[in-house]
């Protein structure tokens, strides 16, 4: 069972308290009704599904109930870091995520 750091509670909690909520940093258009079919397809259907680093949304549903973002390696299943919803996508990742953040 993984430990996940909730950036609001500021501590690691067991995976059971959390729920994944899909890929992060996919902006919903302010004028969504006016979007082209292609743009809506990109927004709604297309996901990166990477082998390696993924930016995704999680919710501390059985804790503080906040949504936040996490960087996870899909190969090792390790969380590199977590950060609050609304914060920009980190441009630099900590070198050893396992040591620096997820502990």
């Amino acid at each position: 069972m993984l430990l996940i750091r909730c950036p609001y509670c500021e501590e690691e909690r067991p995976e059971l308290e959390f729920r994944n909520a899909g890929e992060a940093h996919i902006a919903r258009s302010g004028n969504i009704a006016g979007e082209s079919d292609d743009d809506f397809e990109k927004f709604f259907f297309i996901r990166s599904n990477p082998k390696g680093i993924i930016y995704e949304r999680w919710r501390h549903i059985h804790g503080c109930a906040r949504f936040f973002n996490a960087v996870r390696d899909t190969v090792t299943d390790k969380f590199v870091m977590t950060y609050k919803a609304g914060e920009p996508k980190p441009s630099k990742l900590p070198k050893n995520g396992n040591e620096g953040v997820a502990k």
Binding site: A21, R28, R66, F67, A85, G86
Partner: peptide, 13 residues
Amino acid sequence: MNHMEDYLQTEFP
């Protein structure tokens, strides 16, 4: 409830 919270917290904060 989850759906509402999701939009309130992340799309319409």
